[in-house]
Design a protein around this nucleic acid. Sequence first.
RNA 1: GCCGCCUUAGCUCAGUUGGUUAGAGCGCUAGAUUGUGGCUCUAGAGGUCCUCAGUUCGAACCUGAGAGGUGGUACCA
Length: 489
Amino acid sequence: MTETFRPDARTPRGFIDKRAADLRAERRIIEAVSAVYERYGFERLDTGAFEYADALGKFLPDSDRPNEGVFALQDDDEQWMALRYDLTAPLARFSAQFWETLPKPFRRYAFGPVWRNEKPGPGRFREFIQCDADTVGSSRPEADAEMIAMMAEGLEAVGLPQGQAVVKINNRKLLNGLLTTVGVQSEPQRLAVLRAVDKLDRLGADGVRYLLGEGRKDESGAFTPGAKLNAGAAERVLAFLGAGREDRGATLSNLADVIGGSVEGDEGLADLAKIDAALTRMGVDHDRAAFDPSIVRGLEYYTGAVFEAELLLETRDEHGHAVRFGSVGGGGRYDDLVARFTGERQPATGFSFGVSRLAAALRAAGREAASDVRGPVVVIVFDPQAMGEYFAVAAELRAAGIAAEVYLGGSGMKAQMKYADRRLSPAAVILGGDEIAAGTVTIKDLDLGRALAAGITDNRQWREDRPGQATVPRAELVASVRRIVDAVS
RNA sequence: GCCGCCUUAGCUCAGUUGGUUAGAGCGCUAGAUUGUGGCUCUAGAGGUCCUCAGUUCGAACCUGAGAGGUGGUACCA
């Protein structure tokens, strides 16, 4: 007794199938953002999906679990390879590998899927698309300013004008200066403070105060241990977080009062002042790009400016509940990434848009009305003997630039009409014995037919009226179909 | 990773204190309609009741473990 194995038809968790409408939305975002990058003088670079794991590994969050978080496999020469988890690590590898031959500073952009082997959540997948721009080889704060300007312009280009999304800017040097002045002792304590700071927008000042001190218990009863700062130090951190003002200049001078004095803090302030000046001259004002002391981003990676694109739009899920979308992109200065390969410190700055997240955000905001993808003109197979004629018709239409196909299923005419309907075809071409004998062709405008059907309740009338249908001389086929197709688009 | 909730047809969901052939709506396929997508009527197909183990004469239903989903939380290069 043999039993045939039948696999479950299912997608691995965190992976999704995308159909034409989703892909079109993503492509539109990629094209809009890429055009911005190119206008700023960035060249496109594609690298492979896999990198050697050691080229990615060092910047994983848990260095004691080297391959945690990535999809890794062993090549037949025993070397570990891993799917890229972002586009920056491959750029660091590429820059190190070809440094001598590259124009410096090297400005490149890239887009494509990246993979992270971690628990998926709402709007979080194990495969998603990023669109990334970086400058390697410039330590000027103006290089950071340019990144911020491109983020702001990119948001605009995908349909999120001023007021619907904003770029928030901070500098890790400020945070480091702050940590020094409040007397943070150990690395774990430093990380705990940064994590607490990062949660300001979600938990508010009170929540952060607990996390800076003894810890915080949330509604679910879970306890998050705190950074164990004394009360004075915690208040100092909170004062820093509250230093944002109505424009970038005012925020800067206010921050100087809170943080001024530490060497690193002053450096950070000087960098931000230059970024502010460059942004202003590029026409990027405070409503598009603001200084926000609570922005932290990745803990290990960034060494200077950090920035994050945040959605301000109110979005709702399919049940009508408000959804926080938060960050749709981010980046910053990472001066140590290339040095891993060459030993030579190479200043770099860059950022990514999360294309999948942006697409989801625009959809949730009702911006990307999930408009349906229209199908081709369907040539109905009425008489199998006339197959050659049907393909000639399709070829004529295609030569005229009209998407067309001959129905290749085995069903009758009714099912074929239904097929064309479901494909959202603009028109069906009917060529039966009567038409062939008469040298004519019948063309049905499916949209018009649908509209007329609403007013017909009687079946006999529906059948006799044949709404939206016209029979024309065979020679007028292309012209007639074109009129219908043009009216659709 | 931790905590809560959920899992029955393609989809949304009913389901008897544990008792024979597990249901509905929508969708799908087809017929009524010799060459027409809608409407109406009719018929048909479609189910390891998430999986495994246990309790029981008997489990979709009770117990345990696991998987998947979902909502928080942690992490997020």
